[in-house]
Computed example of a mutant assay.
Amino acid sequence: MSLNDSLAGTNKKAKAVSEKFFHTTYEYYRLKIFQQLTTSFGIVFKTLLIGSMLLLGLTFIAIAVAFLIGKALGNYTHGFLIVGAFFVLISLITYMLRKHISNFIVRTLSEKFFN
Rank of each mutant, 00 (worst) to 15 (best):
T59R: 13
T108Y: 13
L3E: 14
L7E: 02
L37M: 13
S110N: 13
K99L: 08
I90T: 00
Y29T: 06
A16M: 01
H78K: 09
T94Q: 15
T24R: 09
I61H: 06
G9S: 13
D5F: 02
V83R: 01
F87T: 02
Y76R: 02
N11C: 00
L37H: 09
F86K: 04
Y29E: 00
V65R: 03
I50E: 03
F114W: 09
T59A: 12
L56M: 08
K12C: 01
L56E: 03
L92R: 05
N103F: 03
N103Y: 06
H23C: 07
F45L: 15
F87D: 00
V65M: 06
K15A: 14
T77W: 02
F60S: 08
F60W: 06
R107Y: 09
T24W: 05
L31E: 12
Y26A: 05
L73T: 12
L31F: 15
I101V: 15
L92N: 06
L73E: 08
H78F: 11
T47Q: 13
G51C: 04
R30C: 06
T38C: 07
A64E: 10
M1L: 08
L109W: 15
Q35Y: 12
I63T: 04
A85Y: 07
T25R: 01
Q35L: 03
F87N: 00
I93D: 04
N75S: 06
M1K: 09
I63Q: 12
R98M: 10
A85V: 09
E111G: 01
A8I: 00
N115P: 12
T108M: 04
T38R: 07
G42K: 11
F113I: 15
A85G: 04
V65L: 11
I61E: 12
L89W: 10
T77I: 05
D5R: 08
L56Y: 15
T24D: 14
S40P: 05
M1R: 09
F104A: 07
F104K: 10
T38H: 06
A8C: 01
E111F: 11
L97V: 05
L31C: 10
F60Q: 10
I105G: 03
S18M: 06
K20P: 00
G9I: 01
L68R: 04
K112G: 02
V106Q: 04
K46E: 10
